[in-house]
């Protein structure tokens, strides 16, 4: 489904080259639940951002469904972000001036997708499923961390993505809420066969996943 070959990500810091990612080769298959494990600064988030098309590699190739995405233009990349990938961030990244429902509906604004379902109905179903239906008219900053992350997950799922990319989704939550969120993501993988890539620094969480990759200093070890 996703193939990375010889991917490098280099930042220029004060004229010196810094390798955030160094010669990454990785394949992610459909239906897999992959955890990327490593200490902070090891490049795991950068890797996830590149897989999710939020960032571009400096060199190397990234194939999604055998298509080389380094050759796509902004419109095609945006469409993949919109329809192919769903993101869950550590910081939730909700827009505070939009209501919960409007946040969840955000991807529909930019979508050229032909919906086989009514997006709003799906949004309400997802909220109901995640226990946040009564919060639909609230604003995100009035919600608890766990609730905000549920909103983010509902938003990620709205356009029926092929893959869920979760960057430290439990990082800002207490352990009990974190476990709930994790169970929810795991359920998506197990019951719906959703492909999931999860970034974490928690070995225990990583080892509980079907597959885990360890990273250190920009390399897979």
């Amino acid at each position: 489904m996703i193939t990375l070959a010889h991917v490098n990500k280099i930042y220029q810091i004060d004229g010196e080259e810094f390798y955030a990612l160094r010669d990454i080769n990785l394949e992610i298959k459909q239906g897999e639940f992959t955890a990327i494990l490593g200490p902070s600064g090891c490049g795991k988030s950068t890797l996830m951002h590149i897989i999710g098309l939020l960032d571009t590699p400096t060199s190397g190739t990234l194939l999604i469904n055998n298509k080389d995405i380094t050759k796509l233009d902004d419109n095609e990349l945006s469409r993949l972000r919109n329809e192919f990938a769903g993101f869950i961030f550590q910081q939730f990244n909700l827009i505070n001036k939009l209501t919960v429902l409007e946040n969840i509906m955000l991807p529909t604004i930019y979508s050229a997708k032909k919906y086989s379902y009514e997006p709003k109905t799906r949004a309400l179903e997802l909220m109901d499923r995640f226990g946040i239906l009564i919060k639909q008219k609230s604003y995100p900053n009035k919600l608890s961390g766990g609730q905000q992350q549920r909103v983010a997950i509902a938003r990620a799922l709205l356009n029926e993505p092929k893959i869920i990319l979760a960057d430290e989704p439990t990082g800002n939550l207490d352990s009990k809420t974190g476990k709930n969120i994790l169970d929810l993501i795991r359920e998506l993988n197990q019951k719906e066969g959703m492909t999931v890539v999860l970034v974490t620094h928690d070995r225990e969480i990583a080892e509980s996943c079907q597959r885990h990759i360890s990273m250190l200093d920009g390399k897979i070890v």
Binding site: L54, D74, S78, R81, N82, L106, Y110, N159
Partner: peptide, 9 residues
């Protein structure tokens, strides 16, 4: 955030 949700430039 909007770009991550699929907004083009």
């Amino acid at each position: 955030i909007r770009r991550a949700m699929g907004a083009t430039r």
